[in-house]
Design a protein around this nucleic acid. Sequence first.
DNA 1: GAGGGCCAGGTA
DNA 2: ACCTGGCCCTCG
Length: 698
Amino acid sequence: MTEDGGGADLIPGLDDVPRVPAGKARQAKGPAGKSAGKAPKKGARRPAEERPVARVAVDMSLPHLDRPFDYLVPVELDGKAVPGCRVRVRFAGQLVDGFLLERVEESGHGGKLLYLERVTSSEAVLTPEVASLAREVADRYAGTFADVLRLAVPPRHARVEAEPVKDDAGEEPAKGHDEGDDPWLEYPAGASFLNALAEGRAPRAVWTALPGPEWAAAIARAVAVTLRAGRGALVVVADGRDVARVDAALSAELGEGRHVALTAELGPAERYRRWLAVLRGKARAVVGTRAAMFAPVADLGLVVLWDDGDDVHAEPHAPYPHPREVLALRAHRAKAAALIGGFTRTTDATVLVETGWAHALAADRARVRRAMPRVRYVGEDAQLARDAAARTARLPNLAFEAARRALEEGPVLVQVPRRGYVPGIACGRCRTPAHCVACQGPLALPSSHAAPYCRWCGRIAGDWHCPECGFFQVRAIVVGAKRTAEELGRAFPGVPVRTSGREAILERVGPERALVVSTPGAEPPADGGYTAGLLLDGWVLLGRPDLRAGEETLRRWMNAAALVRPEAPVVVAAEGALPAVQALVRWDPVTYAERELAERREAGFPPAARMASLTATPAAIRELLADARLPDGAEVLGPVPVPRQPGAEGPEKERALVRVPRAAGPALARALKEAQGVRSARKATETVRVQIDPLELI
DNA sequence: GAGGGCCAGGTA
DNA sequence: ACCTGGCCCTCG
């Protein structure tokens, strides 16, 4: 692994330069006001007397320029130019933004140095820890420091930065809690994990949480113990709803004012306000979505990642860092504890356990059995319900009966894998799938009486007829949540039907009887838990052409089933012989993940191997691969054409995969970064998108 | 990415 | 003698 301590070297001056500039800067703030940060006119300039050289990370995401550049600090900016602050410099003739990494006595650069143009703000927004982390993340993902900093440091909001700091939380340690309701007592290793946290050690665990709503309280407890031991904590969850849950649990555990929640929907000002509270050490605990993975928590003692298999964790901006990787790096270098949890177990987390990086933390079987629902499966050819409406909703009889009984006591959850009304149709006679004549996109029905339309280009296909047999009527091959909700309403007259999906996600539902139809990931928790769960059309999830289809299906099922009351019925519509179905029935995600990982190892697929995907035109991919000095054992798969996104412009693109043994991951990233640098220095017009550990492989 | 220098090969 | 495009390098 990488050695720690690089951070301290990167910005050594941080501690000896006052964060808020003292006397000098205050004097400089005269009637001139805004111009205080500006250097004077040329000719009059004179370098600062001490440490006149500023090492600056320029905001340039070109791989061949990914290194610090030295500038002179004019004496007027001496007090403002503190390590970590934002500066503006002239680079290759133009004014660009950058971060001041450190102040040094001398430059290694032979030539003449330019002066800093101005100090944008002397707030030290780039801490040494985050700076060295960003460097390591950039290297790990074959990306640039500047790109990572764009993810790690939020844009400045000048007004917020100038606000007086209100200090509501006092200095006394976070309030304690009676031990009676400790959620960690459910886990044999829970107490020792908390003890290690309390003693300021750095335990690392992959946690398979018991089904139910207690997970958020468990995370909050771990955070509280860390805070009481005098260190900070950082929690990353998948979406705003989970942020709200952990936020509430933290408020209950810590009281108000000791932690902040960081989410995208806060808006720039509030987001920056809270982020500054973390930077300035006013908030020692953070919960947020993926962007929070870089939050500058002071003296980090614990990192937590919840539901690490959720694909929304994947950062969509270059260099596409994953929170599991970033938080693991942070834990490692800060000697902080790590807790990677979920109701399921990813193959990636399983690697962490198998390599000995983390311990497995799970409840024993007897406890799991008391908490889990009773899962039964029905195959595709199972008997459908006799009820006409339930038949139309493709509801197996077993599921129909389970729902009927459970609805007498409370809400029933129905998971439908696909959104929309009828998202897939086929010829009513020969069953040839129906496609758009214009773009070959799949045709769908938006409602019961509307004409088919194309899901890609939106074109209405009112005059569709089968290209194979000429028939003009269609049949549903995939039923969406909307249609299922409609049919269930008919099958259970008098029972309210509520839907939760991407457009309108329900926060939670009450304990009263209702059918709650939801797409995967949008399931609202029910007060007191659902009385039953139906997981419909499992074949849609399992049949996706994706390496992770099985793992991901199990995750979606378990996340839904975890909302069902202990020992209440869950019916999954899928073949019972499938390993994912067996894992759900037995509520044993760990064995499933271990087997899955063994198979990936056998086949040489991630996470057992490291992969990089290269997306560009075939010529650009060839050029990059020709320049790249790939490590021994590297294997190039493809390139194969990538399906053009609807509305995408430009030439047809292809994608190649480079596969190396896990240990050669750093060498692969280095080789690709270097080759990208050669290309960009040559002014190659076509860029190649390089992604290390891409989530989707097929 | 922008700007600049250098060289080759063409043009006036 | 002068212009143009391609190549490569630097950028502090």
